[in-house]
């Protein structure tokens, strides 16, 4: 892999500099401020696959939304290809945990939605959408409505929609979290294949350790509030990982147990806090 050369000639796909973000939670009369992201510095390289894992409430979803410019940070900069951004852009596309499909639109209309927003001619938009739906095997369901599809199929529509935009960076928020385990493995393979073929950059939130290690070039472990990056771990496993079962590799189990030990401490602390 020529990661090193890419790193030298290109700016990072996404770079975060000193990102801070806090929220005001109002519970009746008393409001309290919660620090969701406390000074995040991070660079994600072109064509890299990064997974983000951490206990619930660690700010990983906030982090992804900051990267998508759906939320603006209180302080710090988000750079895409070296240029600062402050609103959602066409180089980034999101895939949502709840799929985010419009229930009143057909599958194809859901996929063409971002293209219509960009004022592409309808015929052209349809052509692009068809192409991506065919790739995920949904050509028979283009005129169906989302509620007629299974969860896995719905998320394939969500993925097609993100890919059809032609964005270089996919921001995925626990995309397979609501999908049954076997379909999920299948979707993981499909995603890796697409990522490899199309040379995308993927940032992928998950709460599943196996998934985090299996997919990633690097796993980013976040620690519970104030949201900080605890550790970034390189995953040294050969690709394509679709050809064999990575989970039997020594590197896989070692990386996984290393992550689990770190994560476990956080969870133990959390439980102690909750019970006091």
């Amino acid at each position: 892999m020529t990661n090193a050369t890419i790193r030298n000639t290109h700016p990072p796909a996404i770079e975060l500099k000193g990102i801070r973000k806090s929220f005001v939670l109002s519970e009746g009369r008393n409001a309290r401020t919660v620090m969701a992201l406390d000074g995040i510095d991070l660079a994600i390289n072109q064509h890299e696959f990064v997974t983000i894992i951490g206990p619930s409430g660690c700010g990983k979803t906030t982090l992804l939304r900051v990267m998508a410019s759906l939320i603006l940070p209180d302080a710090g900069d988000v750079l895409v290809d070296g240029a600062p951004v402050s609103e959602p852009g066409t180089k980034r596309a999101m895939v949502f945990q709840t799929f985010g499909l419009f229930p009143w639109k057909t599958v194809i209309d859901n996929v063409t939605f971002p293209l219509m927003v960009r004022k592409l001619p309808a015929a052209k938009a349809r052509e692009i959408a068809m192409e991506h739906l065919v790739r995920v095997g949904l050509e028979k369901f283009v005129d169906a409505h989302p509620h007629q599809l299974s969860g896995g199929m719905q998320q394939r529509v969500g993925l097609s929609r993100a890919l059809a935009t032609g964005a270089d960076v996919l921001l995925m928020d626990e995309p397979f979290g609501a999908i049954d385990a076997q379909t999920r493995e299948f979707m993981q393979e499909e995603l890796m294949r697409i990522w490899q073929e199309e040379q995308k950059t993927v940032i992928f939130i998950t709460h599943d350790l196996d998934e985090a290690v299996m997919l990633a070039d690097r796993v980013l472990l976040m620690s519970r509030g104030p949201g900080r990056v605890r550790e970034i771990i390189d995953v040294d496993l050969p690709r394509p990982r679709t050809d064999y079962d990575v989970r039997v590799r020594k590197n896989f189990t070692e990386t996984r147990s290393h992550l689990w030990n770190l994560l476990r401490n956080d969870l133990v602390e959390q439980r102690a806090e909750e019970t006091t």
């Binding site: 066409t90 985010g100 419009f102 939605f113 927003v117």
Partner: peptide
């Protein structure tokens, strides 16, 4: 979540009303 989808794909206010809020 659908409002966020539309925002993430840069829908403007009119598109937001037409594709998300009204339906």
């Amino acid at each position: 979540d659908l409002v966020e989808v539309a925002r993430s794909f840069r829908a403007n206010r009119i598109e937001m009303a037409r594709h998300v809020l009204i339906p």
